[in-house]
């Protein structure tokens, strides 16, 4: 059974077809890249999976239909995501951002929180420990108390990545995690992606524009163009497909 299966997913905004019968299946532990030229519908596909947009078709996560569920219900099932532009809470510290990302796993009752009962304190400490493990994985120890807005952009991207990881998801949706990063930061990111794939065994759906990173890291690649599937398969095969090259570079007239 596939970890995440998308069947005939379509999305329309008025007369504009953003996604047209897109289907793919991601296996457990796989690093699945979603690529395509600008406006191909990659982020829209991610938004449909995480429940922000409502498409038609079917999205099954670990055998369960999640299409039509609210985003917070989908996150609760263990499907976390990052955002293209970070969308971090700038006023909050790195720790607070990560703890917020872990919200779905913290089940303390507001009435108990008002009095900060021992049970709440125990929960806060336990979740702090869990979040510290994530901080350790992505090497943010130095910055745990810094307000996120004060950090350089490259680090902010890593915080966004860590915030999604803080949920301890079984599947992680990454929306262009490397956009705007320099070479060194990209190499760090690649290291972290491989680490969570191999150490935490997280399934990853990854939108990316850096073909070098994709051919080095991805297990499989799915190419979208104008909302349709163009190709799918091993990176070395797909990235040499004439149709894919044409979509990216254009064809000679």
């Amino acid at each position: 059974m596939a970890e995440l299966a998308v069947d005939n997913l379509s999305l329309r905004f008025g007369g504009l077809t953003v996604l047209d019968n897109v289907s793919f299946a991601v296996e457990t532990g796989e690093l699945f890249a979603l690529i395509g030229p600008n406006g191909a519908g990659k982020t829209s596909a991610l938004n449909c999976i995480s429940g922000i947009y409502r498409g038609t078709g079917a999205v099954r996560f670990r055998g369960q239909d999640i299409l039509g569920l609210k985003p917070h219900q989908i996150a609760r099932q263990g499907l976390a995501r990052t955002f293209q532009h970070g969308e971090l809470f700038a006023q909050m510290s790195v720790l607070e951002n990560l703890l917020t990302g872990r919200h779905a796993r913290i089940g303390t009752h507001p009435l108990a929180e008002m009095l900060f009962l021992p049970s709440v304190k125990r929960a806060e400490i336990a979740h702090r420990e869990a979040v510290e493990r994530i901080i350790d994985v992505v090497e943010l120890e130095r910055y745990r108390h810094a307000p996120v807005g004060a950090l350089p952009f490259g680090l902010q991207k890593i915080v966004g990545f860590a915030r999604a990881l803080a949920l301890e998801p079984t599947t992680l949706l990454l929306d262009e995690p490397s956009a705007g990063l320099n070479r060194e930061e990209r190499e760090n990111l690649a290291r972290f992606i491989l680490r969570i794939k191999h150490e935490l065994n997280v399934t990853i759906v990854w939108i990316e524009h850096d073909m070098q990173m994709i051919s080095d890291l991805a297990d499989r690649v799915h190419v979208l163009d104008y909302g349709r599937t163009l190709a799918e398969g091993r990176p070395e095969v797909v990235l040499n497909d004439p149709a894919v090259l044409a979509a990216y570079l254009g064809t000679a007239a």
């Binding site: 429940g51 922000i52 955002f83 006023q91 607070e96 900060f116 709440v120």
Partner: peptide, 25 residues
Amino acid sequence: NLLRSSSGRAWRAVHARETVAEALG
């Protein structure tokens, strides 16, 4: 007490960006 626990963080997240808060669970 509310602000240093889960509810407080959730409120600040809702304040900052509702869609993102929703997507975080």
